[in-house]
Structure formats: structure tokens, C-alpha cells
Amino acid sequence: MTREKLLLLDFDGTLCLGDAPVLFYADRVDALLAERGLSRHLVGSSVHEIVSRAFSANSLLVPQIQYDDAGTPLTVGSEATHEDAKAHPVSWPLQDGYQLVQLLARQAGLTDADSGQSFRAARRDLLAHGLENTDVHAPSGASELLAETRRRAVVVLVTNSPAEAFAPWLHALGLSEAFDLVINDARKPLGMPAALESARGAGGDAQARTAADQVLSAGDIWANDLEHVHALGGTTVLIDRFGTGLGTPDHRVEDFDALAQTIDAWSHSAATV
């Protein structure tokens, strides 16, 4: 049976849940700040402590964020001068914990290249620690939902997570066989157009590419995961954990359970001709 639809899924915050990955990232940033004598810019707190409190309060608008006179956080919108900054610009408004860590790191004096290196090092730390010893987990029913969806649609994972040692993450989450294609190092949002083009040809038929209006993209960051697909006429679902209200998705949901219902209804609907 020809699968005329394409489901794009984000990883962190969508299929990979738990706060440990962000907190391990914060630990690496804290270590680098201490090494360079920059910890003084976060008086009385560490990045780990700030982010932990943000998660407890379910709000990313922590008092440690520094603003200019116009109310814009300092360093946001500064000119990107290297590839890490171009691919992963400092984001505002914030939509997840990773973005909060990056903003705090930049305001304390680190570069986006430093943040990128800290992120990759934190991923290695998590594996060394053992994912089973953290709160990292897949949403309940994710594996079953994706197996059912693949009967009707091509399912592709698009993630900024590095390809290096990524298989253990999928194994730990029970998602090793869940996708037709996994695109790592996607460099979203800059790399999303290229990732979408690769995904549209992942159905196995070299002559058939999924039409843009038959694509559903789901994730927790509007600019990274959804904006490009929305502009092309696809369907978008935003998991808005922190209630930011950002973007103009077709569906805004609070958690994976609501996302699953949307995906199921979409996959069972007739493809538009």
C-alpha cells in the first residue's frame, strides 16, 4: 500500500521526556562558567539551580534573565558570526529548558559554540551515567502509536541531537524500530527545509515524494519544528508545555496524549488529492 502521508516528529520534549537532559546540559554550562571565572554573573545561583526552579514553577521566565531598556533580553538578536549561532540562534521568547540554558550561558559570557559543545558533552554524560538511572522516558503508548501510524504514513524523526551514540537513546525509549528514517544533526531551524526534503523522499518510492499538504509535523518549538511546514501548507501540532501561546499551529496541545489523538485522527483521514 502506498503511504501518501508523512509524519515528522521532534525528539527532545516530544518523544524524549524528562528533565535530566536539560539539567545535565546546565551542569556542563556551570562547569565551563566556573572554569572561565564567569560564575559571578549568576550571583547566588547556578544554571542548574535556576532551571530546576523554572521547571518546578512551570515557567521559563526566571528573574535571572537580564533585559535591556526595551525589555529584550541582553544578547538576543546579536549578530551570528559562526555556524553554531547561525544554526541554533539564541531564542526569544523561550519555549523549552534548553533555550533557557543557552540564554543564561550567553548572558554569563559563553558563546553559542560553547553552548553547543556543552550540549554534546552533556549527551555523553547522560549515556555514561545510564539513561535508565534518570527520568528520561518515552510517552506512554508512543511505540504503539507510531507502529499503527506507519501502516498509513511515513514516519520520520528529525532531531538536533547528534548522530554519535544516538542508538542507545532510541533503545532506552523503546523506539529503535519506530521510524522509516532518522535525521540527526538537523540544525533546526536553519536546517529544517533540507530535513523536510529528505523526509519527503523517505517512503521508498524514488518517483513519489509526499505532497507538502500531506505532511504533519509535531514538536515543542514553533520555529524549529513547525514554522517551515506551516508555510508550505502542511499540518502542525505544537506541544506547548509552558503555555507560551507562540506560533500559529493548527493544533496546540499540552502533552503527548492530546498529540496522539490528533495524529491518530490525521492518519486515518483520507489523503487530499
Results as ranks from 00 to 15, higher is better:
residue 179 F to L: 01
residue 215 V to P: 03
residue 184 N to I: 08
residue 183 I to W: 09
residue 228 H to Q: 10
residue 212 A to G: 06
residue 234 G to V: 07
residue 221 I to L: 10
residue 189 P to H: 04
residue 235 T to P: 10
residue 187 R to I: 03
residue 211 A to T: 15
residue 228 H to M: 06
residue 240 D to I: 12
residue 203 G to N: 09
residue 237 V to L: 13
residue 181 L to E: 13
residue 206 A to I: 11
residue 225 D to T: 05
residue 220 D to Y: 08
residue 216 L to C: 12
residue 222 W to C: 02
residue 183 I to H: 08
residue 179 F to N: 00
residue 187 R to Q: 10
residue 203 G to Q: 00
residue 212 A to T: 13
residue 214 Q to R: 15
residue 207 Q to E: 12
residue 197 E to H: 04
residue 229 V to F: 00
residue 203 G to R: 00
residue 223 A to M: 11
residue 237 V to P: 03
residue 232 L to H: 13
residue 227 E to T: 07
residue 196 L to F: 14
residue 183 I to P: 10
residue 210 T to V: 15
residue 201 G to M: 06
residue 184 N to M: 09
residue 226 L to T: 12
residue 184 N to V: 08
residue 193 P to D: 09
residue 213 D to H: 13
residue 218 A to D: 02
residue 238 L to C: 05
residue 212 A to W: 13
residue 189 P to E: 04
residue 200 R to L: 03
residue 239 I to E: 14
residue 215 V to M: 02
residue 228 H to A: 13
residue 193 P to Y: 03
residue 233 G to T: 06
residue 223 A to E: 13
residue 183 I to E: 02
residue 217 S to M: 09
residue 213 D to V: 02
residue 179 F to P: 01
residue 193 P to W: 08
residue 205 D to V: 09
residue 215 V to D: 03
residue 190 L to D: 05
residue 188 K to M: 07
residue 232 L to K: 12
residue 238 L to D: 05
residue 199 A to H: 09
residue 203 G to H: 00
residue 192 M to A: 06
residue 211 A to M: 12
residue 184 N to W: 15
residue 191 G to Y: 15
residue 224 N to R: 07
residue 238 L to T: 02
residue 182 V to N: 03
residue 218 A to H: 11
residue 223 A to Y: 07
residue 213 D to N: 10
residue 228 H to I: 07
residue 189 P to G: 12
residue 211 A to C: 15
residue 204 G to M: 03
residue 221 I to E: 07
residue 211 A to I: 08
residue 214 Q to I: 02
residue 239 I to V: 15
residue 225 D to I: 14
residue 211 A to W: 09
residue 203 G to F: 00
residue 215 V to C: 02
residue 181 L to I: 03
residue 206 A to E: 15
residue 203 G to A: 02
residue 218 A to S: 13
residue 212 A to N: 11
residue 211 A to N: 15
residue 189 P to R: 00
residue 229 V to W: 00
residue 201 G to H: 14
residue 198 S to M: 14
residue 219 G to N: 02
residue 197 E to T: 11
residue 203 G to D: 03
residue 215 V to G: 00
residue 181 L to W: 05
residue 235 T to M: 10
residue 187 R to T: 05
residue 210 T to L: 01
residue 209 R to W: 03
residue 202 A to L: 01
residue 210 T to P: 09
residue 208 A to S: 04
residue 184 N to E: 07
residue 197 E to S: 14
residue 192 M to S: 10
residue 223 A to P: 04
residue 233 G to E: 05
residue 208 A to W: 05
residue 181 L to T: 09
residue 207 Q to P: 02
